[in-house]
Design a protein around this nucleic acid. Structure first.
Lengths: 358, 358
DNA sequence: GTTAGCACTCAACAATAGAGAGTGCTAATT
DNA sequence: AATTAGCACTCTCTATTGTTGAGTGCTAAC
């Protein structure tokens, strides 16, 4: 059966109506709401066809229709119209995205929280992984007789640091030497290239002070490993209470249990992390059976060439895709802009997200 | 009316029964379950008295009784027996509390998560505030042409650090000088004593390089302020789904909304932070009306003399107080021990929570 | 002082009926 | 040939009603 123009329009109308009302859509209401000038009976025939094509589903015999995963997919791929944000909305978003913090993690988390507030949806965030960062500078700073801090930075300015507890006292000078040696041997490598054998090598370069070094090196290794793990978080989860589909505790409970497990979140992220543009997972396209009535929209943000994080939303499959997508991409763009500016330019002291036109 | 021994025993039996079943307790079940050898009718009379005294409440005419806030209060203050943990339980807890991380925040969060897992309750945690810490060492480390890191440590080793973005390039030597000056002028003060006028003073000590210094100082000030804010978090919230009292969405929603607002959490914490021992807030003793059917048990942990954090649980008022209290105090003790050891001793490289007898 | 007995109350549950929304099919209309 | 009106049918949802059972308060007997 062919999906002619009329069928497309009817499908679009049904999806959009269902997005708004969360109620199965009947033929009569489509007949009235669209300007197709068709009677309910005609719509009914068409709806029967659309159901046969697998784009609609009927919850029970005497109910209206609801989009299937395929129906939503058709909608987002070729039916929906791009949402144009109003000036007021852009303004509000800019305001929400403006943060004066300077730490990358905080910025991302704050922006994610703001985004959740604006969309009224739970937000998934992934902090930039550092495994692809090229180390530019390593420093060991003595803090106390038994403590030192390891500071690793890369060209774009991402800095991670870790407190080291030392078995033996070291001098300031020794810390400086250590920094120099580490720098000479490890800078230029990516984080993921720094492994134990690598560090051992550095160790063998210096013959003297072997024991002291051994423990420090071990800790450096641990520190680098730890830095390596991507961090996923979710915020604004309680937003799901807005949706009638989460009107009973079982559903809520299920969602919370699924989502509290980071394993699950990374499964979702995996699906999207290959792509460099916005990715939409609808219904059972999400690799977690419990989320089959939900959708996820994910969009990457950039910190530098190959360092990226992800921001996205999670919600019922009947989300307002055009609007969500616009808003999400706006936020990830702003985030990219802010982060690349701030973490590589020399100008800005305070971080301004937005194009600086205010 | 006097609260004689028999009434006390009956009250205790009712509270404990209600804690277990979450169902209003009837006279007949108390008559059977206790070894008082009293008929249901007698118990009924006594229950009538207890209700009159404000210790019990009847949800409706033909229902059993439920403890009132006063009833719970009476129970925790003078009725309940101390819960003795079994060796197996202690073992399990020790295992759960053993962490090899070295960062204070991570340790606390991990222990809190473990505690939530063991008690099956949501956990509230407060990271140690640093406002009372006496600054021992301040360091400015140059990272890049436009970035430096400020590292503040105190005697017990608590270290906070912050990335500074500089307007002007500085030399390594200048960073060293800056560290020296900051140290000479600010070490010995508590964090809360370091304020703007204080920093201005340092600034005036050095005449030259004024402009450069001005911006650095401003950032130092900001950094110190930021360090000052206590951090409250909540974990394991989805545990509340275990309780029948959260069987409908409205209740769950309400709880989530209350608890997501940090303002509310700090209100709760305020109530307890004066005390140096375990504090129990029951029902409407919690300064948040929405939580009137809940209780909070809070216990402080020590990092050093006057630096403390708080760990606690939140749950329905009918929680198993004796057990919760034992477990909570066990955990805060372990935490105190681990943190004071690790953050002041010179011995342990790895952090062992527990008495090291394994 | 304690207990048995009894009338009474009320929530919870199940069964039933009716309304309303929506469908599919058929026959009439354009 | 496509569209539409009409109608019987299906199924959910809501309200109503009756029934059950747990629990109480009171009174009179032990």
């Amino acid at each position: 059966m062919a999906l002619d123009d009329r069928k497309r329009m009817i499908l679009q109308a049904i999806v959009e109506d269902y997005i708004n009302t969360a109620e199965p859509v009947g033929s009569r209401s489509i007949s009235k709401k669209t300007d197709l000038n068709l009677s309910a009976a005609t719509i009914r025939n068409e709806m029967g066809d659309l159901e046969e094509m697998g784009l609609l589903v009927q919850p029970h015999t005497s109910a209206g229709r609801v989009p299937s995963t395929g129906g939503y997919r058709m909608y987002v791929d070729s039916l929906m119209e791009k949402y144009e944000m109003t000036a007021a909305e852009i303004d509000e978003m800019k305001k929400a995205a403006t943060k004066k913090t300077l730490e990358l993690e905080k910025i991302v988390r704050d922006v994610a929280a703001a985004f959740s507030g604006i969309t009224g949806l739970p937000v998934i965030g992934v902090l930039p992984g550092t495994e692809a960062s090229v180390v530019k500078n390593i420093k060991v700073v003595k803090i106390d007789s038994d403590k030192a801090m390891l500071i690793v930075s890369d060209k774009s300015g991402i800095i991670k640091n870790k407190l080291l507890h030392l078995k033996t006292d070291i001098s300031d000078a020794f810390a400086d030497d250590l920094s120099k040696i580490l720098n000479e041997n490890l800078s230029g490598l990516t984080i993921s290239e720094i492994n134990l054998s690598n560090i051992m090598e550095v160790q063998s370069v210096i013959g003297k002070n072997f024991e002291i070094l051994a423990s420090v090196m071990e800790m450096v290794h641990e520190a680098v490993l730890e830095i390596d793990t991507k961090q996923i978080f979710i915020d604004g989860l309680s937003n799901i209470f807005r949706f009638p589909e989460y009107g009973n505790v079982e559903k809520v409970k299920e969602l919370f249990e699924v989502v509290e497990d980071k394993e699950n979140l990374s499964k979702i992220i995996m699906e999207a992390s290959v792509s460099t543009q916005t990715k939409i997972l609808i219904g059972d396209e999400i690799p977690i059976p419990e989320l089959k009535n939900n959708s996820v929209v994910l969009s990457p943000y950039r910190v530098s060439e190959n360092i990226t994080g992800i921001l996205g939303v999670l919600g019922p499959a009947r989300m307002d895709y055009p609007k969500i997508i616009s808003a999400l991409e706006f936020f990830t763009n702003q985030l990219s802009e802010a982060l690349t500016n701030d973490f590589s330019d020399k100008k800005n002291q305070k971080l301004m997200i937005g194009k600086g036109d205010e």
